[in-house]
Amino acid sequence: MTGETILEVRDLTMRFGGFVALDSVDAEVREGERLGLIGPNGSGKTTMINCISGALGNYTGTVRFRGRDLGRSKPHRRTRLGIVRSFQIPRPFKSQTVRENLAITIEYATGAAGAERDDRAEAVLQSMGLGPRADAISAGLTQIEMRKLELARALAARPQLLISDEAMAGLSSGEVDELLEILFRLNEDGVTIIMIEHIMRAVMRFSERIVVLDAGKKIADGDPDTVVADPAVERAYLGD
C-alpha cells in the first residue's frame, strides 16, 4: 500500500569534470513503496543515491524529502531526517562489535541514550538474526553477516526511506532470499525502500515499481513487467 510522495528528485544532474554521471533525472518515491532502481554498470545508480543521501553535495537540481528541499545538507542531517542508506561494499566500524555498531548509530541518528539505546540495539540484533554475533568484532564477520550488519545499522537509524545499495551482491541464492525477507518485513513495518540490485530475480520479486537508468539518464519507469518488456531497457542491457 503506497501513499503520498516521500522523495522527489527533479532535474538531478551530477558532473565529474567533463563526465556527466547523471543527466537531468526526475523521479519520485511514494511512502511505503518498494522501488527497484536498476541499470547497467556505470549507469548512475550509485551516483544518484549518493546525491540523495548527501554523500555527493555538488549536484544541480533538487532533492525534496517530504516536501522539504534538502539543499546542500550533509549526510548526517539527512540520516536524522529519515533518509538512510546501506553501502554496496559493507562499511562497518571494523574495530567495534556488532552491538557497538548499532548502539552508536542509534545514539547519533535518533538521540536515544542509556538503557533505551541498548534495548533498541538488542531489538535490532534479534530482528536481524545477529544476536549470537552481538559481541563479535565486526571485522571478523562473514560476508552474509556483514551484509546483515549493514542493513541492521541502517535499521537502527530508524529509517523512513531506506536505500539499499546492492545488499545482495556475492550472496548465495538462499542468502539472497534471507535478505529479501528482511527487506519485506521492514517494508511491512512502514519503511519505504529503494533497492539497487543486479540480481534480477530479487528485483522482480521485491519491486512494486522499477526505475531504469542508462548512461545517467532515466530510460524507463513503471511496473516490473512493463519495464522488462521495454525495448529501451533491453537495448541498455543487451545492446542493439
Partner: peptide, 22 residues
C-alpha cells in the same frame, strides 16, 4: 558519546557521516 563518534570516524568516516554522526 563524543569518543564513540571519534572511533567511528577512525573506522570509516563516510559510514559515520551516513549513520548520523556530524
Amino acid at each position: 558519546k563524543f569518543g564513540r563518534g571519534l572511533h567511528a570516524i577512525r573506522d570509516d568516516e563516510l559510514a559515520a557521516e551516513c549513520t548520523g554522526i556530524p
